[in-house]
């Protein structure tokens, strides 16, 4: 699943570690999600959406 995490992070000038700290996950998790290697669970997807104040489908894209 594609996502806009890297772009959203860059817009806020956050490093992967910054985002990881805000989500309370490992930097490796952020990396895995950003690169599409791992799709987050629904609870984590909601946390990401809440952090960026967006809807889940605005961050995670089909295909």
């Amino acid at each position: 699943m594609k996502n806009r995490l890297k772009v959203l992070r860059a817009e806020r000038d956050w490093s992967q570690q910054d985002l990881a700290d805000r989500l309370e996950v490992s930097r490796q998790s952020v990396n895995a999600i950003e690169t599409g290697k791992y799709d987050p669970s629904l609870p984590l997807a909601f946390r990401i959406a809440e952090l960026f104040d967006m809807r889940i489908e605005e961050i995670f894209l089909r295909g």
Binding site: E24, V25, S26, Q28, S29, A32, I33, Y38, P40, S41
Partner: peptide, 9 residues
Amino acid sequence: EEDEYLRYR
């Protein structure tokens, strides 16, 4: 493990 990706790994 609270980090779901590390747990998956």
